[in-house]
Design a protein around this nucleic acid. Structure first.
Lengths: 107, 107
DNA sequence: CCTATAGTTTTATCGTTGTCAAACATTGCG
DNA sequence: CGCAATGTTTGACAACGATAAAACTATAGG
């Protein structure tokens, strides 16, 4: 049960977060994460309609931007939103994006 | 005193707005617009450190994404933020981005 | 009318990005 | 051990984007 490397909260950059969120597929991943809380990469990929390597690329983009957190348990990798970290850095940003994307805020 | 073509409010797309805001130069333009309200392209360009044609490209990107509005008066073109339109489409988004970018909200 | 001003468009270059396919790595299971 | 499951990485390719230079457009002013 190991945690993958992520940028520290204070290293999360606004422009990188915005860029990460500016792709429809990544936005969909984020919206789904907001709805279900946690998800394996496989579950995410099932809804995306792209090749699994493409999906993996998007997971990495989201992780490196500081938007999601990934932890490994066995063979599975679980993603979740870094809600608290994002809210510290950019208060209200994620919520407004989620609301705008039509996601259930679930908070 | 003519208005340049812009997307209608309901046609403003979230991902395009996020993409437009995800470039440091464009974010700077937006932050300055938030501070001063209105600005000519020339004034904007003076602070950006890029070629005027590059700056013009960024103005167009912002305009086509629905982030700014441009009106021409004589030889000058004035840009301003489409605050109200953005707030209708994506409530709170622009404010949180501006706050995160360190802009004075001035509202 | 001629010129300067303010910006846009065009052209070219170069790096980045999204995509898939195929190979690879790691983990759990029989 | 060997095999299947779950993702990641690498390689290739096409599309896009940021940039600058130069040509162009439009307007104001002398």
């Amino acid at each position: 049960m190991r945690l993958l490397p992520h940028p520290a909260t204070e290293d999360i950059e606004l422009t990188e977060v915005l860029r990460a969120l500016s792709d429809p597929i990544r936005l969909e991943i984020v919206a789904r994460l907001a709805a279900v809380g946690e998800m394996t990469c496989g579950d995410a990929g099932d809804h995306l309609g792209v090749h699994k390597s493409t999906a993996s690329h998007h997971y990495r983009t989201l992780r490196e931007a500081g938007v999601v957190c990934t932890k490994q348990e066995g063979r599975l990798k679980y993603m979740s939103l870094r809600r608290d970290d994002l809210d510290v850095r950019f208060p209200g940003l994620l919520d407004s994006v989620l609301a705008a994307s039509g996601a259930l805020a679930r908070r």
